[in-house]
Design a protein around this nucleic acid. Structure first.
Length: 143
DNA sequence: GCCAACGTTGGC
DNA sequence: GCCAACGTTGGC
């Protein structure tokens, strides 16, 4: 069982959109490092936080689970080339009553190694430890 | 909107 | 395979 943080711009796809749909395909990943993680390390049953990026309120908005293995990303449209990209299906679990902001996480010393907080991190999906996952969950209650 | 930090591309 | 130029990401 693995734990993840997955970024999305809420103007494109938000936790509210996922809540309405219940399930969705996490597609559009166009980074080989991220693709390889999806292919090699993501498993059905993994847990993931939904992170809102590039917006007014940056931070973790809720929880979802991974409900499929990596499969071809059908949003890739380039006939003549074979499709290197992958997607996974996710399912809504919960929306946090209050967003856990980036600043909240930066102010938490035990989260200082979070990849998402490192300068220059542009990976849309990063793995977190079980410990970090639990610390974030505890923040959702204490804020 | 700015810009640093990456990733990708393409000529050599 | 090197590396400059370019494009993209994403916090601020």
């Amino acid at each position: 069982m693995n734990y993840w943080i997955m970024k999305s711009e809420p103007e494109v796809f938000s936790i509210g959109d996922l809540e309405k749909k219940g399930r969705a395909t996490w597609d559009g990943v166009r980074n080989y490092q991220v693709r390889n993680m999806m292919r090699d390390e993501m498993e059905k049953g993994d847990m993931a936080y939904f992170y809102h990026s590039s917006c007014e309120q940056i931070g973790i908005a809720g929880i979802m689970s991974i409900i499929s293995k990596a499969k071809p990303d059908i949003t890739f449209k380039d006939k003549g080339k074979n499709n290197p990209w992958l997607a996974v299906d996710v399912e809504f679990i919960a929306r946090f009553p209050h967003l856990i902001t980036r600043a909240d996480m930066q102010a938490t010393p035990t989260l200082k190694n979070l990849k998402i907080l490192q300068k220059g991190c542009r990976l849309s999906i990063t793995q977190v430890t079980k410990k970090e996952f639990e610390i974030i969950q505890s923040l959702s209650f204490s804020l």
